[in-house]
Amino acid sequence: MSLSIGRGTKILSYIVLIAWAFFTLFPLYWTIITSVKTQSAVSAPNPTFIPWVQFEPTLQPFRDIFGEGEGYGVSGMGDVARLFRNSFSAAFFSALFAVVLGAMAAYALSRFRYRRWRNNDIAFWFISQRMMPPIALVVPYFLLFGRVGLLDSVPVLIAVYTAMNLPLVIWLLRDYFQDLPIEIEEASMVDGTSRYGAFFRVALPLAVPGLVVAFLFAFVFAWNEFLFGLTLTIDQAKTLPVQLAGNVTLRGPRYWDIAAQGLVVMLPPLIIALLVGRYIVRGLTLGAVK
């Protein structure tokens, strides 16, 4: 939609947008500058905003994270490489599995007609799985995985995150497949390709952009997940958000440290947002307007 717009409206719009941009970006800015402050700069009676002018930045908080810390601050984030590896594997593989399973189901929902269950009801059932409060699964997961001795393992996180993201992925991809022209697949099937061939050789390659967006979504949400990470891991499979959350008490938050650790955890989603933000935004709102 585009209409000619009055000057006043335009100015008002810009004011609203600038205000919103400030609201959105200031917290990020604050995190970044806090991560390069010393303890004295953080505990100063008045907050300071401008590096080099109001306070002298330091990289000490980051040194603490990566194990070159001072005194007891050594390895402030523990085994940061292992934490990163855990978070990454859990997010990457769960996103991958969710996309594989999800693409198949989404394709089925957009190409076949299910008489007894009705397609819309199946789709609704999938999305209703997203309604399930995660806390309801915490205890049974804890008991079931505990019984088979699988607590504190990355594969369990992968399995759980796959289930968590599957409904969303199916929903996104169903829309995507519905928008793909059926005719090409039909033509190939007339030429003797099986349904599987049509899916793998025709539909999937066409759907790659959608698959990527769904994958990135699933990756980010798994990367950010906290409750299952908190309750199902102890040490070997501990993820970054769980380690970060450990800063919450005892001698109170060491903000300079926490800001640096927070940035480390924010980094992959931030990179994804910067690189492919535009597609993500489209994917995000894709289904909403159908």
Binding site: L17, W20, A21, T24, L25, P27, L28, W30, T31, T34, V220, W223, N224, F226, L240, P241, L244, A245, N247, P253, Y255, I258, A259, G262, L263, V265, M266, P269, L270, I272, A273, L274, G277, R278, I280, V281, L284
Partner: peptide, 23 residues
């Protein structure tokens, strides 16, 4: 702006919470 406005959604709530705790 569309991309910038989408940022917050993609960030880990735990990290976001610490940011707001400071604010």
């Amino acid at each position: 702006m569309r991309v910038a406005f989408a940022f917050p959604m993609l960030l880990p709530p735990i990290a976001v919470s610490f940011t707001w705790k400071m604010l």
